[in-house]
């Protein structure tokens, strides 16, 4: 029974990871920017949601504010940090270091203004009930799973049916050709950052309702998203989402065999193994090294 409980727990965590990882993969795939400040979008959205709920806003307004915060932050980082660096042809590492700096600043700003330690939202959704003998499930589990599925369906439709979505995929495959066809790669990159960052908001809200936020959570979320993107195969949203789900489940189920402290290391062990033995990931195309 413990195993089933851990599996369900893992699915819930995995759904959150899948959403953030898909956002990161969308941005990285389309713009080739290693958006290391993605975790900050997540943290900001979570805290905005917590503050909105504490101020007594209705949940949908809080959700809207959180999504807006994440989206604006993503766009802002692209516009004020990544774009100037890319203009003078900075390499990926320049971008990485700058993004890391942004992450540190956001983490400490949250620490100063929202206080350090855990903060969470109290809802009746997170109250667990016994669904099977010895297996407890809160309603938020269904919320997490259905929100993740819904968003993926919408995202897939957008990327395959809508013109802008198709253009985003084209940007990933051949930015020069895209420009030759008269499309603006800057405008599309903005779209990628807006969409990718917005995907982190629902994940942050679910986290705020379940395990709670702390000021360093952006870091952890970022590392997991990055791991999922690489394990899933760069350029494959499906891969990133699946790998995110997998990492969540692996982390949780590992508790059946090892102590809690080792759970986090499991994800990175998987990542490390993939980089050494299969750098192109599950769904990735073999890349020239």
């Amino acid at each position: 029974m413990l195993f089933i409980q851990l599996l369900l727990q893992g699915l819930q965590v995995g759904a959150i990871y899948a959403l953030t990882a898909a956002g990161f993969a969308l941005i990285f795939g389309a713009t080739r920017v290693f958006h290391f400040a993605h975790g900050s979008s997540f943290a900001l959205a979570g805290y905005v949601f917590i503050f909105a709920m504490q101020a007594g806003w209705p949940w949908w307004l809080g959700g809207l504010a959180a999504t807006l915060a994440a989206t604006l932050f993503g766009i802002g980082v692209f516009w004020f940090v990544y774009r100037p660096i890319q203009r003078h042809e900075g390499s990926f590492f320049t971008v990485f270091v700058a993004a890391f700096g942004v992450g540190i600043v956001v983490q400490n700003l949250i620490g100063i203004f929202a206080g350090r330690g855990f903060a969470s939202v109290d809802t009746s959704l997170s109250r667990a009930v016994e669904v099977l003998p010895d297996v407890f499930l809160a309603q938020v589990f269904w919320v997490a799973i259905s929100v993740a599925c819904l968003l993926f369906a919408a995202l897939t439709l957008f990327l395959t049916r809508h013109n802008a979505g198709v253009a985003l995929r084209a940007l990933h495959q051949n930015p020069d050709l895209l420009r030759a066809y008269g499309l603006s790669s800057t405008r599309l990159s903005l779209l990628a950052f807006a969409l990718g960052s917005a995907l982190a908001a629902p994940a942050a809200m679910v986290t705020a309702m379940t395990s709670g936020m702390n000021e360093a959570i952006g870091h952890q979320v970022m590392l997991i998203s990055m791991a999922a993107t690489i394990v899933g195969g760069v350029g494959s949203l499906r891969g990133a989402a699946l790998a995110g789900l997998m990492l969540g489940v692996a982390e949780s189920v590992a508790l059946n065999f090892v102590d809690t402290q080792w759970a986090e290391a499991v994800s990175f062990l998987v990542l490390f193994a993939f980089i050494i033995f299969r750098p192109s990931g599950i769904f990735g195309i073999a890349q020239a090294r």
């Binding site: 290693f34 990485f96 791991a227 690489i230 990175f268 980089i275 050494i276």
Partner: peptide
């Protein structure tokens, strides 16, 4: 084995595992 972003990711993974260890 790998370069660029992949290597950064690998070294991050190593760092996180070592911290746990």
């Amino acid at each position: 084995r790998v370069r660029g972003e992949y290597f950064v990711a690998a070294s991050l993974g190593l760092q996180m595992m070592a911290t746990t260890l």
